[in-house]
Amino acid sequence: MTLATGQRVRVLEGPSVGHVRTPAYVKGKQGTIAGVWGSYGNPETLAFGGDGQPARPLYYVGFRQTDLWPDYAGPATDTVYLDLYEHWLEEA
């Protein structure tokens, strides 16, 4: 799977066990790929003495605030962007 800029994605709801860099507040939420950073060592194994291989594609993913927080107080156009690894994303 390689995701492209502009594609809609959903963040997986996997449990945060071990060392995970996907924050709880985006799990299960839908966003849009805004950029592709290339591949980076996998923190989930690097955190336990592993070598981080195979490296994982990393994406810049944008979310509408109102999709993350139902009672978001600001304008509907406000957003949150994060860096998420491919194995936490599925096509939406």
């Binding site: 860099r21 996907t22 924050p23 950073w37 980076y40 060592g41 923190p43 990393l58 944008g62 605030q65 406000d78 957003t79 949150v80 962007y81 994060l82 860096d83 998420l84 690894y85």
Partner: peptide, 8 residues
């Protein structure tokens, strides 16, 4: 646009 530095 809040940018949350979650990776490298």
């Amino acid at each position: 646009r809040v940018v949350d530095s979650t990776a490298d």
